[in-house]
Amino acid sequence: MKRLFHFLDTLTERRSRALASTSSRRGALVKVGKVVVAGAFALPVLPFDRTSQAFAADNNGKAKKKELTDTDCDYWRYCSVDGFLCSCCGGSTTTCPPGTSPSKVTWVGTCHNPMDGRDYLVSYNDCCGRTSCGRCQCNTNYGDRPGYRMGVHNDVNWCMSNDSSVYHCTVSVIVGVAEQG
């Protein structure tokens, strides 16, 4: 067995040295580059699954819109959320899970409810005090503004004003109807 390994090792070394003496690194990089470029052109034509998107078939085979729940990132009141949904982490859309407390500061977004055609002011409260939930992460950022406008910027740890600055999840509380005009 030892002889076999020695033979394979010697053979591999000879072949590698012979290849290295007859080719250049530049030539090898050109060949690898050609393969990468050819592969990149093939990628856009590969099929991918879109069945989990917003349409599902009913019993008659007709397409209908999927009913969104409070655990879907496309749910209307999550139009400006950035974080884990508390409805997936032991809480609800409006209440923090046990063992956490709502942040003392929040960010506010205006979301359109397609069911009644009205716009609502939604306060996004981070729930603080436990490690990140890690489920149902949404990052929609609709209407997000730069970080220097803190009240309309969602990419901040809003738990910074609480006793514990550890982020767990986010709730979305409707605080009013947006005025039309």
Rank of each mutant, 00 (worst) to 15 (best):
P97M: 14
P97W: 07
P98L: 11
P98A: 15
P98W: 14
G99R: 14
G99I: 12
G99M: 05
G99C: 12
T100P: 03
T100M: 03
T100N: 03
T100Q: 11
T100A: 06
S101T: 10
S101K: 11
P102R: 12
P102N: 06
S103D: 01
S103L: 01
S103R: 02
S103H: 02
K104G: 06
K104R: 13
K104A: 13
K104T: 13
V105K: 13
V105P: 04
V105R: 05
T106C: 09
T106W: 08
T106A: 13
W107P: 00
W107R: 10
W107S: 11
W107H: 14
V108Q: 11
V108N: 14
G109T: 10
G109P: 07
T110N: 08
T110S: 14
T110P: 01
T110A: 08
C111K: 02
C111R: 06
C111E: 06
H112G: 03
H112K: 14
N113I: 09
N113W: 12
N113M: 02
N113Q: 04
P114N: 04
P114K: 05
M115I: 04
M115S: 13
M115H: 09
M115E: 13
M115T: 09
M115D: 15
D116Y: 12
G117I: 09
R118K: 15
R118M: 15
R118T: 14
R118I: 11
D119V: 02
Y120I: 07
Y120D: 05
Y120N: 04
L121N: 10
V122S: 00
V122H: 02
V122G: 01
S123P: 01
Y124V: 04
Y124Q: 04
Y124F: 12
N125T: 03
D126R: 09
D126H: 15
C127N: 01
C128L: 04
C128Y: 07
C128P: 00
G129C: 11
G129L: 05
G129A: 13
G129P: 09
R130S: 06
R130G: 01
R130E: 06
T131E: 06
T131K: 15
T131W: 04
T131P: 01
S132T: 10
S132I: 08
C133H: 09
C133R: 06
C133S: 07
C133I: 15
G134N: 14
G134P: 07
G134T: 15
R135N: 10
C136F: 07
C136Y: 03
Q137L: 10
Q137P: 11
Q137M: 15
C138W: 12
C138S: 13
N139M: 11
N139S: 11
N139V: 13
T140V: 08
N141K: 14
N141F: 03
N141M: 15
N141I: 03
N141W: 01
N141C: 09
Y142F: 14
Y142P: 03
G143S: 03
D144W: 00
D144V: 01
D144K: 02
D144Y: 00
D144C: 02
R145W: 04
P146A: 13
P146L: 04
P146R: 05
G147N: 10
Y148E: 00
Y148N: 02
Y148A: 00
R149K: 09
R149C: 00
R149G: 00
R149F: 06
R149Y: 07
R149L: 12
